[in-house]
C-alpha cells in the first residue's frame, strides 16, 4: 500500500427533499451530512453502519452515480464535482461499482458476455475479437468459465451472479471499486467464496476498495481502515485493528458489543441501550445523544466534530 491518495472526499452532502403534490417540504432528509475522508491507493476503507445511516448514498454520491448536494470528491487529483459530460465519462472506467443484489443488477435479456463486455465497447477500449478475449480473461479471473459468456444471468446461482457483477466491474481495469454490500444477499458459505475472490483481486490487480457493509465481521476482515457512520455522519474512523481493539465512540462500542460472539459460553456480557422515540432539535446537538448511555447536557446543545485523537484515530464525541 503506497501513501499516494487516490480518493479524497471533502464535506460531502446529499440531501433529499420530500416532494409533495403542491409543495416541497423545507426540511430535507440529510442522508449524507458532511463526510470527509481519503483512501490511499491499494487500501480498503470499510464504511459501516446500520440501515438508513447513509452509507450506500455516500458510495453512490462519491462516484457521482447520484448528484451530491454539495462537497468535493478528488479522484486521482481531479475534482469530480466540477467535471461535465465527456470529461467525467473519460474517468468512469477507472471507478466502478459493485451492487448488492446480484438478481436485480444484471439485465436478464443480455448474455453474460454482453454484460461484462458492454463497458469495453462504450468506452472504446476493445471491440470484436479483442473484446471477446478480454471478456474471457475476466471471466476466468473471477472463477467462471469462458463459455459462460454465452449464457444468461438466470442460469446462474446468486454467488455466480455476483461473480458476473464483479467481472463487469473489473473488465475496464479500474483503480477504485465501490462495493455496496456485495455479499449481503448471499448464503454464508457463498459469502466466504466471494470475500476471498474480492481480496485475491485486490492483491493481484492492485485495486482500491470502498467497501460498504452493515456486517462488522466482514468489514473487519477485509478493511485496512474503517469509518463508522450514524445518521449521515462519520462518528469514528481508525485502522480496523485499532477500531476493534479500542473503540472510542459510544455508538461504535455498542455496535461492536452487539455482534454475536459465536461462542455460547460468552453470552451474557452485553450492555444495552435504549431504542428511542425522542427527536433532537434540528441541526443542534449530537445525533447519537438520544441513544447514548453517556449523555450529558452539552450533547443536546452542540454537535461534536470529528477530531483526530492520534494515529489517525478520528472520533466525533465531546467526552472522549
Amino acid at each position: 500500500m503506497g501513501s499516494e491518495i487516490l480518493v479524497q472526499v471533502q464535506d460531502l452532502k446529499k440531501y433529499f427533499f420530500k416532494e409533495r403534490l403542491f409543495s416541497t417540504e423545507k426540511e430535507p432528509i440529510r442522508a449524507v451530512d458532511g463526510i470527509s475522508f481519503s483512501i490511499r491507493k491499494g487500501e480498503t476503507l470499510g464504511l459501516v453502519g446500520e440501515s438508513g445511516c447513509g452509507k450506500t448514498t455516500a458510495g453512490k454520491a462519491i462516484l457521482r452515480l447520484i448528484e451530491p448536494t454539495s462537497g468535493q470528491v478528488f479522484f486521482k487529483g481531479k475534482d469530480l464535482m466540477s467535471l461535465r459530460g465527456e470529461e467525467l465519462r473519460k474517468l468512469r472506467p477507472f471507478m466502478q461499482f459493485i451492487f448488492q443484489d446480484p438478481y436485480e443488477s444484471l439485465n436478464p435479456r443480455m448474455r453474460v458476455g454482453e454484460i461484462v463486455g458492454e463497458g469495453l465497447e462504450i468506452h472504446g477500449v476493445a471491440r470484436g475479437k479483442e473484446k471477446r478475449e478480454r471478456v474471457e480473461e475476466v471471466l476466468e479471473q473471477v472463477g467462471l468459465h469462458p463459455q459462460d459468456a454465452f449464457r444468461y444471468p438466470h442460469e446462474f446461482s446468486g454467488g455466480q451472479r455476483q461473480r458476473i457483477g464483479i467481472a463487469r466491474a473489473i473488465a475496464l481495469r479500474p483503480e477504485l471499486i465501490v462495493a455496496d454490500e456485495p455479499v449481503s444477499a448471499l448464503d454464508v458459505s457463498i459469502q466466504a467464496q466471494i470475500l476471498n475472490l474480492l481480496m485475491d483481486l485486490r492483491d493481484r490487480l492492485g485495486l482500491t476498495y470502498l467497501f460498504i457493509s452493515h456486517d462488522l465481521r466482514i468489514v473487519k476482515h477485509i478493511s485496512d481502515r474503517i469509518a463508522v457512520m450514524y445518521l449521515g455522519k462519520i462518528v469514528e474512523m481508525a485502522s480496523s485493528e485499532v477500531l476493534f481493539r479500542q473503540p472510542l465512540h459510544p455508538y461504535t462500542q455498542l455496535l461492536l458489543q452487539a455482534i454475536p460472539r459465536l461462542d455460547p459460553a460468552k453470552r451474557e456480557e452485553k450492555i444495552f441501550f435504549k431504542e428511542t422515540f425522542l427527536s433532537l432539535e434540528k441541526e443542534r446537538g449530537c445525533l447519537f445523544a438520544p441513544r447514548c448511555p453517556h449523555f450529558k447536557e452539552r450533547c443536546a446543545r452542540e454537535a461534536p466534530f470529528l477530531v483526530d485523537h492520534g494515529d489517525e484515530h478520528w472520533v466525533a464525541c465531546h467526552f472522549v
Binding site: 446461482s157 448464503d187 458459505s189 457463498i190 466466504a192 467464496q193 470475500l195 476471498n196 481480496m199
Partner: peptide
C-alpha cells in the same frame, strides 16, 4: 483467506 465451502448448494 476464509475457509470457504467450495461449490454451490
Amino acid at each position: 483467506r476464509l475457509n470457504a465451502i467450495p461449490g454451490q448448494v
